[in-house]
Design a protein around this nucleic acid. Sequence first.
DNA 1: GGGTAATCTAATCAACG
DNA 2: CGTTGATTAGATTACCC
Length: 178
Amino acid sequence: PFCKKRSRTLPSDLPLCLFPGGSHPKVGGDRRKRTVFTPAQIELLKKSFEENQYPGYQTREALARCIGIEEDRVHIWFQNRRARTPKRIRIGNHAAAPYRSYPKVGGDRRKRTVFTPVQIELLKKEFEENQYPGYETREALARCIGVEEDRVHVRIEMVGAPKTSLNRTYWNHLKRSE
DNA sequence: GGGTAATCTAATCAACG
DNA sequence: CGTTGATTAGATTACCC
């Protein structure tokens, strides 16, 4: 029982920005199956969270190995945890300057993935056909080009640009520099 | 240095118990 | 039906070529 058919095209009229969270009825593919953490895993995650609310990649990776789960699941868990932690208790964030402090706190980040032209080509082709590939699609695509699924996910998110045909990040970048 | 992956927040959807 | 994992938009920072 999951929700159906991804739309092949963007809904023409209504801007997607009106529907954060992918709430537009026509978008959103099959989701990754919800992860169920064991009490022991939760305990370790919470303990780790108390020590550092912004663990870097190495830390997340180690933690993930320790509790036998993927690094990206840990990453998501921390994001959700922070989002649901009252701001006054949140360490390493300042409401006024949302992004200013995170690099210091976060520390190391994952090594930048470099896609080959062939990989880009395939990603682009898939994206044209479906801008919101579900989990199964992403997984298959990832296997096909030989990278991890979450890298595909990030990549798709980056490129996804309802507003323009340009890369979303690039668009923001240009907007900032004038 | 420019282009873009990694990361963040915020809001929302939706599976599980 | 509340808790919480997953998805998305938008924004910022770091890094490879």
